[in-house]
Nucleic acid binder design. Structure first.
Length: 316
DNA sequence: GACAGAATAT
DNA sequence: CATATTCTGT
């Protein structure tokens, strides 16, 4: 109906070949170099592997596809000036986000259905659910993606980080499920997913009110504030996998017999698994110093290399 | 009705 | 315990 909004501000994506002019180096800190990334044109998994797991061959994706998806997301976000405050929060999208690693600079894909880009930069979420990657075609009656129960979402460290980033940017006040969901830009992530997590997050914070030693993030903040690191990551344990866990991963449920089907992705970026653990403090427990794990949200350098989410939204 | 948030259920 | 689902109030 009205393509008025050009993606003027969006052209800073790496589309212009050597356009170093438009690049913000700060954003690239910690990112793998171009050489480390798997080219978009290359599938993440080998054909054999794909076949073995009955994974449909991915359509070739180009940078354009990625950009297109990214832009559509951004523009769609822009189109909804939600509220005043939320709009303000969205602001950091266009001009010049000084964020180090928040939202939407890369579209996240949740659900490997097959029409979204997926690469090193594109985050992907991973669900735990049925064993194999490919859900049986659905014999008979199923109406594509509708009425299908999605597999349980696993909040990986990456996902959680995004969550935290977004929440901290919005400020607790504006951090409501819908907005968070939008800003996280994770395809397939639902409002209830976020709501549920948010609920937990809030509980966690509440529990921690007044506890010295650890700073709590400002409950609210102003329209434009740089991503102050003053946020309170829930204890997400992830960062350095003590044990060699090179694989990247799909977080599968421990429910399935030994079939540990992780994509033997060669990525040397360890991709965190699910976070393990909230601190379980007892309400009246005296000792609160324990840090069962700390949510690795403070991890600036760790750019979300890959969230992997595979939903069994069989279409077709 | 859509949504947020809390309460339950799995 | 982590998430999902359901319920309730706005």
């Amino acid at each position: 109906m009205g393509e008025e909004a050009d993606s003027k501000d969006c052209d800073m994506v790496a589309g212009d070949g050597e356009g170093d002019e438009g690049r913000v180096l700060e954003w690239e800190v910690g990112l793998p170099s171009a050489d480390d990334l798997i080219p978009l044109s290359q599938s993440l998994i080998s054909p054999d592997l794909a076949y073995a797991f009955s994974i449909a061959p991915e359509p070739a994706r180009t940078l354009l596809d990625v950009h297109r998806a990214s832009q559509s997301t951004v523009s769609s976000l822009r189109r909804h000036p939600t509220s005043s405050s939320a709009a303000a929060a969205l602001n950091f999208f266009s001009p010049f986000p000084s964020l180090s690693s928040v939202v939407a600079d890369d579209p996240v894909v949740l659900d490997g259905e097959g029409d979204d880009a997926e690469d090193g930069t594109t985050a992907t979420v991973s669900t735990a659910g049925e064993s194999s990657c490919v859900p049986p075609e659905n014999s008979g009656d199923d109406h594509s993606s509708r009425s299908l129960k999605r597999p349980r979402l696993v909040w990986t460290a990456q996902l959680h980080k995004r969550f935290i980033d977004v929440v901290s940017h919005l400020g607790i006040k504006n951090a409501v499920p819908k907005t968070i969901m939008q800003l996280m830009n994770v395809d397939g992530l639902t409002r209830e997913n976020v709501a549920s997590h948010l609920q937990k997050y809030r509980l966690y914070r509440k529990r921690m009110e007044g506890i010295p030693g650890v700073g709590l993030p400002p409950s609210d903040h102003f329209p434009h504030e740089p991503p102050s690191q003053t946020l309170m990551p829930m204890p997400y344990g992830v960062p350095p996998p003590p044990v060699p866990m090179p694989v990247f991963g799909i977080s599968f449920h421990p429910g399935h017999s030994g079939a540990k089907e992780m994509m033997p992705v060669v990525s040397r970026h360890q991709a965190a698994g699910a976070y393990h653990g909230f601190v379980s403090h007892h309400p009246n427990g005296g000792a609160i110093g324990d840090q069962q794990g700390d949510w690795s949200a403070g991890n600036k350098s760790g750019v979300d290399a890959g969230l992997c989410f595979r939903s069994q939204q069989v279409s077709s």
